[in-house]
Structures are given as structure tokens and as C-alpha cells.
Design a protein around this nucleic acid. Structure first.
Lengths: 305, 305
DNA sequence: TCGCGGCGATAAGCTAGGGTTATGAAAAAC
DNA sequence: GTTTTTCATAACCCTAGCTTATCGCCGCGA
């Protein structure tokens, strides 16, 4: 077991991932026999079968599965070592992989990318937009460097950093302009339009109304805030959107926007990253820029309170 | 950075550890030039200096230090991989590295080793006896599989498992036999003999008396319970020892043993191990045996309450 | 039923990486 | 100044790990 190789672990991981020798070999950019031999060698080093070679496909044995878990952890740590090295060579990030939830992305992302590009010359930004759960998972796997989501996430392996709070506003048909804003309890009697399952903003809206899905009179679900606003303007119901979405979403839709009375609903937006990331310094700097982007953007479109 | 080798990391760790190429090379069982080259290669893969080559010794650069931290983590994980492999090959441990604190070791260890040997045929047991802090450190470094200490230790990376509670008893000169047992407050007015700094039992005894070291009237320190008891029998003062030590320590010394009134002082003895150890199943079985050893031993020497 | 195509395992040969010993330069110890 | 360290360099050598070529196996389709 002293001659264990990182190469072997990488090959193992590749094979475990897709279950075919040939394809895994391609992925590793080696020939199929080479992979076969390394796997065989690994197996006799650990002294047990890692894969079950059925015709047509190879699957991990039970032992192989627990083994794979640890191997992935090791490979991730090694990748972080590489990040660390890169970070110390270059005090600045060359590549930044950002994750962001869909209810922030369209409004904040352009400004962020702009500002980051201006501040960190030559930075290469990759963006992934999806729901929080998926982002957390991808962070864990080392596929993202940071994510911008609604706090708290409360994953022990993630560090959270608050960026700002943002309020929710009520979206009604234009005819309702000027009418009194309903109490939160009243909302549940109205036809409330929500995002589909999985969006954190859906849950935040629901919790403001103090209801579970089941107790709602009637719910229509949309796949984006944009859709929701369009539906409102078509007279189908009402909805809530985060303040930041207002300028974009009311540009093309005829709706009335109103603030709630106190206590106003709101959520906290923040950044998260792996505790173990070697890029903390850089991420903190990034966070400054992002906070700046958000501030100027919110100041530009500030609603009268 | 893709051609990073575990071997390189091992060599790096060795060199970081003792700061001399030659000696580190010896430790790795390779020639000195071989080590030089691997280190050089590692450095250019990482893209920065890891060591500061002053004449006479090599020291880690600042970067090297943060690098070393992570490298150690990786190597530990790889070792655990080996453990995992071994554990799955053999459902039973071939080698068990136990740590144990000095105030338990002499009394419990013989029984434990006996029982473990009887229960797990062919098991090879290595024992390390030292104070809790050192044991914790060695656990962290993967140099021990488990340790038997007084709980709680409260290290987040360790799992604790309670084995049993044991009370402390008062040791006085034979002439004091039958005299009333002093209140805990009274103890601090007497000449209390304690273990030297670093032993957890010392702190437990002190906390029972509700005093810090400074407030004690007079303290003599011994390096083992045995010494303390001998000093008591020589009329130098009084002391506390754990119940388990009574049969052994009173064998050769003329002293009087008495229980305290309620609330009696006591401590909890338990096992600890790395959360990440792949040997949990085995360690749990071990714990059963150890608990058994302790139980029978305590039953044999049970004092009338 | 037979042959074909895709799979992983095996075989044979080549190359380079990692090891060795021998030696060099520079600094510290004496 | 000499000696004795230290680590780096050079030259050589061997084996580990890659390649291509080939085999045997199984499932599928004509």
C-alpha cells in the first residue's frame, strides 16, 4: 500500500464515475489497457476487488463505494493544493467559478461580472445558475469556487458571508395601484403566484405569508420571476418579487408595485464557499466588489420607501 | 500540477519535518540526490519555493508552511485509505495502536491487553502511555488508532465514547483510619499531594477541592500516583487517587483509604478516536471488550461503599 | 445459428521517469 | 588552512507504465 499512486486514484475515480473502461480511459487520455492494468494493480494493493466486472459494464463493489468516497475527498484536497499553489504564485485569481441562484442572477450578475472584470484585469469568470441545493453540492465537489445565495445555508463545511438584505415587494394588476396593501394574512386568501418547487425564494415568500403550500387557496407556479410578473399583468393573480427584480421585470409588463407595511418581508443575500478553500483572501476581495455592485445597483433603482 | 505524485508529497513531508536533506532521505529510504530532485520537481510544479535553503539547514517558506498543512491532511487521508483496505480485507484489526493516560494505564492496561488478545486472536497491540494533550495530538496525526482518557475532551475531530465512571478516594496515613472524612473545603487547608502539571487527574482533583493551584496552602508534586501514595505513607500529606488504583497502590504502602461523602468526586473514562477513522466497527467492538475488562476488574476489587 | 461488434484482459516492446553512485561547490567546524 | 559538513549536479541504469496488437468473451442481429 506504500506504492499507492495519485494517478491510480484518479483513474479509479474516472472508472467509478462512468463504469466503462474504454470511456474512462479516454477521459484520462490514456489507452484502455493502461487503465486496466492500473486498476488491477490498485486492486491488489488494497487487497480486494473494487469493481464488479459484469459483462457490458463495471460497477463498484460495496467496498469500492466506501473506498470511492474517501478517494474523492483526497482528490479534492489535492485539487485545492493546486489552487493554493496558483493563488500564491498569482495573488489574483485567473479563473473564478461562480454559482448563483436564479432569483438574483438576471438582476445582479451583469453588474457583478462587469465590476469584477474591471477590478481584476484578465480574470476569467465562469457562471453557473441553478438552485441552492445544487450549488451547495457543486461547491462540495470542488466544481465551484463560490456561490451567491440566500442565507442561511447552514452547511457545516461552508463559510457564509452576508452581502446585503433585500426586501420583497407586492406585484398586482395596474388597476390595483393605490389600493391598500393587504396584510400578510390576507395574502393567503388571494391567488398567489409562486415559483416552482426548489427555489428558495418560493419558500421565503411562503414563510412570509405564514402558510404551507397545502393551506393556500390556489397556487399557480411559474419557472421564473419574469413569468410570474407576466401572469400578474395578465390578471391571473398576485405575486411577490425581490426588490432587485423590479426595474427589469416591470420594464415590459403593466403591473403595480407596492411595498408592504412593517414588518416587511426580506431575505439576506450572501456568499458561500468551502471552508477549506485556499482562496479565502481572494474571495474576500471578490465579496467587496460584489457588495459594491449590489449597492450601486440598488441605489440607482431605489424606490421611494 | 497534474503530475503531482504522492511520493513527492511524502518526501516533502519528510523534509519539512526534519529540515535536512540527508536525514530526510534516509527516513524515506532513498538516496539524498533522489530526494533533492523530487523536491526540486515538486517546487517547479507548484511554481514557487517551498524551502529556504540556508546553508546548514532548510526551512519552510511561509508558503511552504501553509502547503505543508494541507499535505499532511492529504497523507493522513491516504493512510486512512490503507486502514480501510486492511479493515475490509480482514474484518479484524491486525494492529491496534492504543494510547492511554498514566493514571489509568497501570491498573487497567494488563487486563485490557489480556482480554483483547483472548478475544481477537493474533492481534498486535502497541501501547503509548502519556498525557491527554499528547495523545490527542498523536491521534490527529494518525499515529494512534484510539486513546483511553478522561472525558470530555471536546475536540471536534474526535468521537468520544463513555466507558465507565470511577470515583476518587482519599488516601491518608494509617493513623487517620476511622477519622471522619474531611469536607472538600477542608482539603485545601491540608497538605495535598498532586501529580505534576499536565495530568488531567491533577486538574480533576483540584476542581473537586474547588481551588486553583495558587490558593492551595502547600503543594507537593509527584510524577505518578505510586509516588504520591508512598509520600502519604511517609507522612508528608494526603492525596486523592482514582478507585481503580487502590488495589495496586495500597499493596506495598501503609495508608488508609476512605470514600468521600456525597457528592463524591469522580471522573468519566472513555475512548476517543478520529471521526474519520475507517475502523469504527472494529473500535466499537474493542470498546465492548475494554468495558468488560474494566467491569470485571472493578467488581473484583469492589470496595464496600 | 453463425458471425459481427463492442467489451475488458493479456502480451510484447519501447521510453522515460526515478533511482543509483560518483563528484562538485560552498559553507561551517575545527 | 584543512576538514567535514551541507545540498546540487552529472552520468548511468533499470523498471514502471505507456503504447499497439491481439485474444477471448458475451450479446445482438441477420
Amino acid at each position: 500500500m506504500k506504492n499507492l499512486t495519485l494517478k491510480q486514484l484518479r483513474y479509479f475515480e474516472a472508472l467509478a464515475r462512468d463504469g466503462r473502461f474504454r470511456r474512462a480511459a479516454d477521459a484520462c487520455a490514456i489507452s484502455q489497457p493502461a487503465l486496466s492494468m492500473q486498476i488491477k494493480e490498485l486492486e491488489q494493493e488494497v487487497g480486494g476487488d473494487l469493481f464488479e466486472r459484469n459483462a457490458r459494464e463495471v460497477k463498484l463493489t460495496a467496498f469500492g463505494q466506501t473506498f470511492a468516497l474517501r478517494v474523492r475527498g483526497i482528490l479534492r484536497a489535492v485539487d485545492e493544493l493546486a489552487d493554493l499553489a496558483r493563488a500564491s504564485r498569482d495573488p489574483f485569481l485567473a479563473r473564478l467559478r461562480i454559482g448563483i441562484i436564479p432569483t438574483i442572477a438576471p438582476y445582479l450578475l451583469p453588474a457583478i461580472i462587469n465590476d469584477l472584470n474591471r477590478t481584476f484585469d484578465g480574470i476569467e469568470i465562469q457562471v453557473r445558475e441553478t438552485q441552492t441545493a445544487k450549488l451547495v453540492q457543486e461547491l462540495a465537489q470542488g466544481e465551484l469556487d463560490l456561490a451567491i445565495v440566500a442565507l442561511p445555508v447552514s452547511e457545516p463545511f461552508l463559510t457564509e458571508l452576508k452581502l446585503f438584505d433585500e426586501e420583497f415587494v407586492l406585484v398586482r394588476r395596474p388597476e390595483d395601484e393605490g389600493k391598500p396593501v393587504p396584510e400578510r394574512e390576507a395574502l393567503r386568501e388571494m391567488r398567489l403566484l409562486l415559483l416552482e418547487e426548489g427555489h428558495c425564494f418560493r419558500d421565503q415568500a411562503l414563510s412570509f405569508c405564514k402558510v404551507g403550500t397545502t393551506r393556500l387557496r390556489e397556487v399557480m407556479e411559474g419557472s421564473s420571476l419574469s413569468t410570474l410578473v407576466q401572469m400578474v399583468s395578465a390578471g391571473i393573480g398576485i405575486t411577490l418579487i425581490p426588490e432587485m427584480a423590479v426595474p427589469v421585470e416591470t420594464r415590459s409588463a403593466q403591473v403595480s408595485i407596492s411595498r408592504f407595511q412593517m414588518p416587511r418581508p426580506s431575505r439576506t443575500i450572501g456568499m458561500i464557499w468551502r471552508n477549506s478553500t485556499p482562496l479565502v483572501t481572494q474571495l474576500l476581495q471578490i465579496s467587496e466588489v460584489v457588495r459594491g455592485s449590489a449597492d450601486t445597483m440598488r441605489r440607482q433603482h431605489a424606490m421611494r420607501p
